[in-house]
Nucleic acid binder design. Sequence first.
DNA 1: CATGAATGAGCATTCATTCAT
DNA 2: CATGAATGAATGCTCATTCAT
Lengths: 219, 219, 219, 219
Amino acid sequence: MNVHSAGDRPIATPPPNDKRRRILDAAVQVFAQHGFFHARVTDIAREAGVADGTIYLYFKNKDDLLISLFEDRMEGIIAAFRAELSRLEGAAERLDKFVEMHLGMVEREPQLAEVLTVELRQSSKFMREYKAPRFQEYLDILAEIFELGRRTGEFRPDLEPRILKRIVFGALDEVSLVWSSTRRDKYALADAAREIRNLCVRGLMASAAHETAQQGDRP
Amino acid sequence: MNVHSAGDRPIATPPPNDKRRRILDAAVQVFAQHGFFHARVTDIAREAGVADGTIYLYFKNKDDLLISLFEDRMEGIIAAFRAELSRLEGAAERLDKFVEMHLGMVEREPQLAEVLTVELRQSSKFMREYKAPRFQEYLDILAEIFELGRRTGEFRPDLEPRILKRIVFGALDEVSLVWSSTRRDKYALADAAREIRNLCVRGLMASAAHETAQQGDRP
Amino acid sequence: MNVHSAGDRPIATPPPNDKRRRILDAAVQVFAQHGFFHARVTDIAREAGVADGTIYLYFKNKDDLLISLFEDRMEGIIAAFRAELSRLEGAAERLDKFVEMHLGMVEREPQLAEVLTVELRQSSKFMREYKAPRFQEYLDILAEIFELGRRTGEFRPDLEPRILKRIVFGALDEVSLVWSSTRRDKYALADAAREIRNLCVRGLMASAAHETAQQGDRP
Amino acid sequence: MNVHSAGDRPIATPPPNDKRRRILDAAVQVFAQHGFFHARVTDIAREAGVADGTIYLYFKNKDDLLISLFEDRMEGIIAAFRAELSRLEGAAERLDKFVEMHLGMVEREPQLAEVLTVELRQSSKFMREYKAPRFQEYLDILAEIFELGRRTGEFRPDLEPRILKRIVFGALDEVSLVWSSTRRDKYALADAAREIRNLCVRGLMASAAHETAQQGDRP
DNA sequence: CATGAATGAGCATTCATTCAT
DNA sequence: CATGAATGAATGCTCATTCAT
């Protein structure tokens, strides 16, 4: 990302926190491949090209490594999402973009997606205290979209952003999980995106039926 | 369930497969409390009131215990769902019922719900081969509802049951997870049910906006 | 062996101690196949066609089963050896016969031979107290042959039966072990018998060399 | 052995592979005392003054520890034997030396002898694949002696080194086993050595009988 | 800062033995 | 006598974490 700054200093100077980054990158790979519990710290160290002990210079313990990984990656993702969304006006447009970006990320970095998705869940079991603030923030982007839509009258006034953010995230998450675990052979993520968008915009009911559905389509 | 028949036989008759059932019940508790990985076989044994070794008379190993638990419970759930749903006509009604039953189960047996939901995911990480056939069957109930709706014209003709079943399940699952992990203080599951139903029936858009939203917004 | 007596009683009457014998037979098979330590009592029970617990009606424990097996089989062997040897006059003839019978037994019942040979050794490690009286008796048959030869002047007067019995048994045992573990492909037991006999009768030295070897070498 | 060189270097220099050697030394003691199966890895660790886990840094598992122990010790023994034997001319002299060295080793290191002898046998039961190459090499030293004697005409031309090496090893082994397990009270190993030597040189037959049997050189 | 050898707590699993039927 | 389900003590091995260099 900060590629341009590279020329400013002698090339020999390693980027600050080179090791930390390499460890995090390695952790993504290893956690994604074996799952958090079966991942060995040694394997992460080897993958990162550092000694086992080095990991403990940057992270308190294995749990902390997962948490840090999560926070670190989410920070970037949240920033990117906010930047992109801020350029759009309507709530519907933004929701579309959110869905597109979420699934795009899954498609581009399936390993990362798997860690953020699957491993987070199980970790919440044993890290009861960890509230995953970045995850909340991520969800809040969604909530804000719903708020916006409600405020501007674009969306129904009776919708509950607090709940809807979970619903939409859950849908995205499940769809991503299937896609990445089945090695993308079942359906394209683009199809999933369209289906989610359709559900949000039109619901499930047959087009004409909509308004009429409530009153008169069964004579 | 068979409460009435209880009086018919001598009380002394021990329930068939008493031990197996007690172990499974104990496993639900212990897995839910500590998570699969942190759950100790010894704890399950103690909770079940049997010796450690007894567990291995009924299950191949700890993994098999989780899988068996999953299959066993899902079987009952699937049967109950099918029975209930078969009494309803419309796809929309059935979908409503499905949502209601899923969340009702979560509310009644949060521990079981957590195991079926959270632990299954992580287990799929390390039990790559386990395809969770009962879970597929459960999802298929959803898919069948969408098929039905599409066929009868009740639902949009362009919806994809294969994807939608994942979307709706993901939504239900996420909503359940939050509810059970936050100890129900955020919102009632009934609210979540209503929100999901609304999303399915009406989508997100403001009532009038619908058709117009697509064309009218961009003159 | 006692086949003739079978007709004397109703066929239905099972031979006394039928179970005990079946268990011992099974133990030979299972011990030979897996070794004493890796042999499971359950496997012996299955092979014998009895329940696990039944074994403990006839034997104190797994160790006792091995010991009993040993005593039981050795008893028969010793009796047979004594009977056969008593019909021969000379010590050399008897030694020949002993070698022939020992290796013959190995050839006919390799499984039994393996248990008596290999498993006994390791058991002596952990059953420090067990003196294997039948084994001593077996060795004594050999010692008696040497005694006889010494007394009659057939053998050298300076030989030590106490030690020679071990030497000859060790030779037989090792040769048997190799033969049975290599699945008889290296050499025939008959060759080994001849070699042992030659060693005893002629020693290793070239025929003429004998006396001269002792004096002529050191002038 | 390298006692003199001790003064040459700073005492602080730790022997290379200190831990590995200590573990092997400890294993000899513990295996000899309890037998392979009853020996606990924990006990070996304590005896070696290392942690349990340390053993697994040097050896794959308990089996591998036994095998490594065997290979390691045999290597030294084989080298020492070859060195010593190469200084002797005749086959008979070499055979004498072999017997002397084998029993000398048993006398000096009874624990090691017991492990190499007893535990190897039982291990071959469960480590079917392990061919004990060093043991073969050890036996081959014997075979070579017989070959030499046969070639030079010192020994009978009809002897079979392949079989005789087993016979002599078996004799030595059995004699050693008894000596070490009876805590040397029965006979001195020197007696056993003499007895084996006599058997090889003169056979068992009374002197007169001997030559007369063949030709009659004693009036 | 970095290393990686050493640590040792922790746990799933086995299997000889028992005993209620 | 016979059964075989149940027991629970016993142990090999793993791997997160430390710390001397």
